[in-house]
Design a protein around this nucleic acid. Structure first.
Lengths: 193, 193
DNA sequence: CGCCGGCATTGATCTATATCAAGATCGAAA
DNA sequence: TTTCGATCTTGATATAGATCAATGCCGGCG
């Protein structure tokens, strides 16, 4: 059950059997059916969820009632919780399953335990955060600069596997364009290429 | 010379005299005149720069030759280096001074030393990173969702002090709109309010 | 003091993308 | 297999914001 997570971590730093036990102890397994929500349960501040199988997405709904996908998360990705998101933002935050999925939940306590007890975890976590920050900068600049078509091209180049698995209207939502516009872009490109 | 940084850190966690010595040892002081660039010198991977005085900005120039401001950094802010930025991105990255400034540079080695030796530093760094990540999410959603005017309103509400200090065309660049558009927005609002 | 060069303003167009409105197509459930 | 809802496509129109082009303004430098 924990194997995918172990494998993921072992690509980043060595993991002893003790470490594995430690990890298994602080992580909670959950199964999600397609369309099901990953709700915040209890009051344990959650750090994130590791997608062991399936495909999740996180999104917000803005004050105009529109959905905006923040992140897609296929296997071996982390979806981060909105931890620290401005509570006075009216936008509501959701995570749900695009396909039947299995996730491993980590709460703040668990996270701190691992930071402390599992050598390599802290550094690897650090590196992950950093990398994600850069990706976000890129996305910001992209969304400010690039045309819809450029953003689309960029996406399929960067995440070809995701492109294939996601319904078009969700991709449009991620790119910040309407489904109609995305449809037209695809049509134009299919003619050209 | 290091006082602003000490003060900044002490708001986050207690700092002994030893800690201060440790910090002073790993940090480099630099003075920048208005318009001057903060270049990467030598090959030491830099983590970031703390603005002790003045005002910096970081920006990229995209392949169409356009400037896009990523971040403004007044006193007591960190400008992060592009550490980890995708090297194969053609976009070039710059940091320069909008006003005469003084900065304290921290390289990777120093950062790791502090992580290790100064209690509280690691956790506080962590928290900072997290907070910034959230801010970036917000900016992404904003840039995808909101109109130019909404983004402007948002900015002046969130960073009133920055608004006053920055030339309009730079603010426009940050918001991802043309100076002309920003000028028109301001005109409309001044009439209304 | 006066001049010049960047900055802001204003106006006239142009264009990418949204919005509105039907169809067409696909897929899962009965 | 049929059907219904969701998704995708296509077309017509509207609009926010870009672009192009002057003009005005102000502050620093000679």
């Amino acid at each position: 059950m924990y194997e995918p997570l172990f494998a993921y971590l072992e690509q980043r730093f060595p993991l002893s059997d003790d470490d594995k036990a430690e990890i298994a102890a602080v992580v909670t397994h959950r199964t999600l059916k397609k369309g099901e929500f990953l709700l915040r349960e209890g009051d344990a501040a959650r750090v994130g969820a590791f997608v062991a199988k399936g495909f999740l997405r996180s999104y917000v709904i803005d004050n105009k009632g529109k959905e905006h996908i923040i992140q897609f998360a296929p296997e071996n990705w982390w979806v981060s919780d909105k931890s620290g998101m401005n509570p006075d933002t009216t936008a509501s935050f959701f995570i749900d399953a695009i396909e039947d999925s299995e996730v491993l939940l980590m709460d703040l306590t668990g996270h701190l335990t691992l930071m402390d007890k599992v050598p390599g975890y802290a550094k690897s976590f650090q590196a992950g955060i950093q990398k994600r920050a850069t990706a976000k900068d890129t996305r910001i600049i992209n969304s400010l600069t690039a045309t819809a078509e450029e953003r689309y091209d960029d996406f399929i180049k960067t995440y070809p596997s995701i492109t294939a698995r996601v319904p078009q209207h969700m991709l449009a939502s991620y790119l910040g364009i309407t489904p109609e516009t995305l449809s037209r872009i695809r049509k134009l490109q299919s003619r050209k290429r």
